[in-house]
Every structure is written in C-alpha cells, then in structure tokens.
C-alpha cells in the first residue's frame, strides 16, 4: 500500500513537471507563430484598430507579464476565453472531448477485436497456405494511409450502397465508418506484432519443456504462447490508444466528427490560443493517464515486474 502511494505520488509529481514544461513551451511557441491582434482585427484593419485590440485583450503588455498572468489563471483552473466564440476555452474542450474519447475507445476495441484473434491465428503457423497470403495483405494495409481507406469506405458504403451516412455524429450508424477508419489504420500493425510475438513465443525454450511433458498444441498455444505474446502487445495497445486520444485529426475532419482534433485544427488556424492551450493540456493529461495505466497493467500481468512483498 505504501509502495502504491509512493508510486502514484511520483507519477503525479512528474505529471506536474510535464505540464509546467508543456504550458511554457506552448505559450511562447504559439506567440511566435502568429499575432493574435492581427487575426482578430482582420486583414482590412488600420494600425489604430489593431492597437486598440491589443490594448483591449492585454496583448500590449510584455510577453513575460502575459505569461505570468496566464500561469496565474491556470492555477485557478481558468483556461481563458476563446476569441472566436467568446466561450470559456474549457467549455469548448468539455463539449467535444467525449466525442474523441468515445471514438478512440470504439476504434481501439475494434482494433483489438480484429488484431488479436487474427494475429494469434497468423502467428501460429505463419508459413502455411492462406495465412501467408493474408499476412501479405495485412502488410499492404499497414502501408496504406488512413485517409485513403476512409475515402474508399465512404465511397463504397455511403455513396454507392447508401447504407451508412457519410458524415455526422449521433446515431449508431454514424459511428461505423469513423471507427472502421481508425481500426484500418491501427489493426495491421497490432496484427503483425501479435503474429510475430506468438510465433517467437512458440519458439521459446519453455514451450519445448511443455511439449516434452506431453502438452498438446492447443494447450501450448493457449496456456503458454498466447499469454506471453499478448504481454508484449500490451505496450503497443497503450501507445496506439494514446495516439487516438490526441484526436485523430484526419478522421475527424473527413467525417465531420465534433471532437478535439477538429477543434484543435480550427483553433490553430484562427489563432485562438486559449483553446489551443486548453486542448493540448487535456491531451497531455489523457496521454499521461493512459501511459500510467499501461505501465500499471504490465505490473499486474507480468509477475516479473511485480515487486516482491508488495
């Protein structure tokens, strides 16, 4: 218990450090990329109008002063106001984050549901007949960009067959194409990793021990090879999920998905710094949590990582 508390404590401390570095970098980098006052005033504005806007938003203050007041606001959990919508930035994030998280979960679940059985099957006997062909197809799919698959899916199911809506967010049908797009992007890689892991797990010394003691192939496969192979795949699942949480921008754009990916792109384009910052912080925290959970699941699954006595 004491070990758990200290682990969580250490993790939280590193999260705080991460956020400090991230917000600092982000704050200054954003201000190098664009001048908010010019964007707000519009291309036709006179120098006086721009100056007035600067004064109104406090952009005329020295950058360091702005930074300090931004940090102060952050400590009070005030993420600033969107210059586009006039809403608090945090509200914008809150309104869209669940669409992204839910899509990420759906995409990951589908990926796992496809990749683990398929990879496990391919890895058991990789050089026989149909599996070889299928493995080659998976390899090809891994090299295909996600948006190509998305466009093909839209063309087939939405335009030609008219079975599914080609965009939108709501009914079950609207989820199918975005989810499949994400899965088509992630599944080939996970499939190949699972297949390779199963195959190398089958070549381990302990498999030979089990065989020498009369274990049949099914037992060897389910009891010895697969658990060891999936242990290795856990790390990839963790990184893939973290990647999905950072907003699969292209997928969200293609399907008009109201997630943080589209919000992030739109805010960057319109120099809506408060929202960019809020979205980035939200993503950082989510990725951090997913990574921590991945590590924790390793500890749970792999006896070699469990601490003796805890």
């Amino acid at each position: 218990m004491k070990a758990l508390v200290s682990t969580v404590g250490r993790r939280l401390a590193s999260l705080v450090l991460l956020l400090v570095v991230l917000t600092t970098l982000l704050f200054f980098l954003l201000r190098v990329t664009a001048d908010q006052a010019l964007v707000l005033a519009g291309p036709e504005a006179s120098a006086e109008q721009v100056a007035a806007i600067r004064a109104q938003y406090g952009l005329d203050r020295p950058l360091l002063t702005q930074y300090v007041s931004y940090l102060g606001d952050l400590l009070r959990l005030d993420f600033g106001t969107s210059i586009i919508s006039g809403q608090p930035a945090i509200a914008e994030v809150r309104a869209r984050i669940w669409a992204t998280v839910a899509l990420a979960i759906a995409g990951m679940m589908t990926t796992i549901a496809i990749s683990i059985p398929l990879g496990a099957w391919l890895g058991a006997r990789p050089h026989t007949g149909g599996r070889r062909t299928l493995a080659a197809f998976v390899f090809l799919l891994q090299g295909t960009p996600g948006f190509v698959v998305a466009l093909l899916l839209v063309q087939l199911f939405a335009v030609q067959l008219k079975w599914l809506p080609f965009m939108g967010y709501g009914s079950f049908a609207t989820w199918i194409l975005p989810t499949l797009t994400l899965a088509s992007f992630l599944a080939p890689k996970l499939t190949r990793v699972v297949a390779a892991n199963v195959n190398s797990a089958l070549a381990e010394d302990h498999i030979r021990t089990a065989r020498a003691n009369g274990a049949a192939f099914t037992e060897i496969y389910w009891r010895h090879a697969l658990p060891n192979a999936l242990l290795g795949a856990t790390a990839l699942i963790g990184t893939q999920f973290a990647f999905l949480l950072s907003g699969s921008v292209i997928t969200e754009m293609i399907f008009g998905w109201p997630g943080i990916g589209t919000l992030l792109i739109r805010s960057i384009q319109s120099a809506d710094f408060a929202v960019v910052q809020a979205v980035t912080i939200a993503i950082a925290i989510m990725v951090f949590v997913v990574n921590a959970l991945t590590d924790a699941s390793f500890r749970l699954l792999d006896p070699r990582l469990r601490r003796a006595g805890s």
Binding site: T209, D302, R304
Partner: peptide, 15 residues
Amino acid sequence: GMIFQNPMTGFNPVR
C-alpha cells in the same frame, strides 16, 4: 521425461 540445458528459460515466466 526430459531435462533441458538452460533451466532459466525452460519454465514459462508468467506461470
């Protein structure tokens, strides 16, 4: 029955 050379890798590490 069979005894193999390397006992360190001869057992399944997760059981």
